Simulated scan of single mutants.
Amino acid sequence: MKYLGFILFTVMTNAAAQLMLKHGMMSLGSISFEGANPVLKLLQIVFSPWVFLGLCTFVISMASHLYVLSKVELSFAYPFLSLAYVAVAVFAYFVFHEDLNAWRIAGIAFICIGTVLIAQGGSGHAEASTPEQSVSTSELTR
């Protein structure tokens, strides 16, 4: 649990990036590549302020996730990223007035329950096994 703050930072920056990308794409309106140079259109999308800020935030999120992966087990850290779905759904409800019906709320509840169960399942620290803890194949056949 020592790195839980970093894990939650990763989750929140990931969710924030998704919300910024959505806002940026909404502000651009309908996108059409007909009659336009696709490379120029893509650059226009990438360098629009909210999309660019979202992409930069996503890079920060990934850098934080890489740090977390260097400190804890993948099987512990990765399921926490599902909390980004929870944050995005809740914030999208309030910011973009997206639907948050009973099925989505039930799914969010299951995600939260699953994440709590995974967090209780161990410390999550990535520890290299020492030679005395290792069991060789020849020892197993004895």
Rank of each mutant, 00 (worst) to 15 (best):
L55V: 11
V59W: 11
M62C: 10
T57C: 14
S27L: 12
E34F: 15
W50I: 00
S61H: 04
I31Q: 09
E34W: 15
P38G: 03
L28F: 06
V51I: 05
S27R: 15
L43V: 02
W50K: 02
E34M: 08
M20H: 07
F58G: 07
M62W: 08
G35S: 10
F58M: 13
Q44L: 03
M62D: 12
V51A: 04
G24C: 04
F47M: 07
I31G: 09
E34Q: 14
G29Y: 11
L40Q: 11
K22E: 00
W50N: 02
L28T: 04
P49L: 00
L21T: 04
M25L: 15
G35Q: 11
M25A: 10
G29S: 08
V51M: 03
L43F: 05
S48D: 03
Q44Y: 04
S48A: 05
S32P: 11
S27E: 12
L42F: 08
I45F: 13
S27A: 12
S30M: 13
I31D: 06
W50V: 00
G35I: 04
F33R: 14
F58P: 11
F52P: 12
L55M: 13
F52M: 07
S32A: 06
A36Y: 11
S30H: 15
V59N: 07
I60F: 12
G24F: 01
L43Y: 03
S64H: 13
I31W: 10
M62G: 08
G35R: 13
P38N: 02
V51K: 05
F58W: 14
M20L: 14
S64I: 03
G54C: 02
V51S: 03
C56W: 12
T57K: 09
L53S: 02
N37K: 15
Q44S: 08
P49E: 01
S30A: 07
V46T: 01
C56T: 06
I45D: 06
S32W: 14
L28N: 06
S32G: 05
L53N: 00
T57S: 12
L21P: 04
W50E: 01
M25E: 08
L28A: 05
S48Y: 06
S32R: 07
S61E: 02
L43D: 03
A63P: 15
A36K: 15
V46M: 00
L42P: 13
S61K: 03
E34T: 10
V59K: 09
P49C: 01
F58S: 08
P38A: 02
G29M: 09
V51H: 04
K22N: 01
F58C: 07
N37G: 13
N37Q: 10
S48T: 05
S48P: 07
W50T: 01
L40Y: 10
M62R: 07
S61R: 03
H23A: 09
M20V: 06
S30R: 14
C56K: 13
G54L: 01
K41P: 09
L21S: 06
L42I: 08
F58L: 13
L28Y: 04
S27K: 13
Q44R: 08
G29H: 13
S30K: 14
N37P: 15
E34D: 13
L55F: 11
M25T: 12
L40W: 09
